[in-house]
């Protein structure tokens, strides 16, 4: 066993990944690796392909009519484009820009629905996992007495944490977050940023953000995208203090974007 070196496992490996909308080449030849317990921040100006890129990781991109992907995405060593997309998505959680609890479902049902619809019906198991997920999402204390109220009755920040709990309930090794705080107020945003530091223990996180401070605060790795290309990828401290590329520096110092 190699001594002092801390052994890290690669969770996600992306090789020569390209994505199209019809003829439009939105994501160009991306290569990167994400290790266990990393928080990878994707930054870059609006329209540079951040969302498109993370949607190739859970194969949501291909749900858009005319959309296409080439290249490889390896999750825990398995090539996800050679597998059943439904199975892949159970291993990749996703949190969206707008909090989107399922309308008509209670707080409990919102968290339980992923498990329930994949065949787990035992009430005791569901109750246990719902509680655990809500605790992980730091929402349990606020909702434990009203689990049967509609998920949509919560405040925006609570709804987003409910969506995080919903994603965590199926225990994915990786969690994708597409600008999860951009629709929230500063206090709710701060709560979610704090939460990410706790979540890191259970799950590897890829987070898209247009907020540079947020990226530098929460992430361990940063990837800078521009016009569909990955310009720079490295440790967050390095990318923000000594970027290798001029474009990166211009972007993080706010000269464009």
């Amino acid at each position: 066993m190699p001594n002092s070196q801390v052994q890290k496992n690669t969770i996600l490996e992306v090789k020569e990944l390209n994505a199209w909308f019809g003829d439009f080449h939105a994501v160009k030849n991306i290569n990167l690796k994400v290790e266990q317990n990393d928080i990878l921040a994707l930054i870059g100006p609006s329209g540079c392909g951040k969302s498109t890129f993370i949607r190739t990781i859970n194969r949501l991109h291909e749900e858009v009519p005319g959309a296409r992907v080439t290249g490889e995405v390896r999750l825990l060593g398995q090539d996800i484009y050679k597998m059943d997309p439904v199975k892949i998505r159970r291993q990749v959680g996703m949190v969206f820009q707008k909090p989107n609890p399922f309308p008509g479902l209670s707080i409990f049902e919102n968290v339980a629905v992923g498990l329930k619809l994949s065949g787990i019906q035992r009430k005791s198991i569901l109750t246990e996992i719902v509680e655990k997920s809500l605790k992980q999402a730091a929402l349990w204390n606020e909702v434990k007495d009203k689990l049967n109220e509609p998920g949509t009755s919560l405040s925006g920040g609570q709804q987003q944490r409910l969506c995080i709990a919903r994603a965590l309930a199926v225990t994915p090794p990786i969690l994708l977050m597409d600008e999860p705080t951009s629709a929230l107020d500063p206090i709710s945003t701060a709560r979610i940023e704090d939460l990410l530091q706790d979540l890191k223990k259970y799950v590897t996180i890829v987070i898209v953000t247009h907020n540079m401070q947020q990226a530098s605060r929460v992430s361990t790795k940063t990837a800078f995208f521009l016009s569909g290309e990955l310009i720079e990828f490295g440790d967050t401290s390095q990318v923000f203090t000594k970027p290798n590329k001029q474009k990166t520096e211009e972007y993080i110092t706010g000269r464009f974007g």
């Binding site: 749900e63 959680g93 399922f102 994603a167």
Partner: peptide, 30 residues
């Protein structure tokens, strides 16, 4: 009127499309 990101949230949980429609979309609109 059901926003498409609700459908995507269902799919992203690893729920097959027909189940997303029957158990999530219809349930919220019945």
């Amino acid at each position: 009127t059901v926003p498409s990101h609700i459908r995507e949230a269902g799919l992203a949980l690893g729920i097959p499309r027909y189940k997303v429609i029957l158990h999530i979309i219809l349930k919220g609109s019945w």
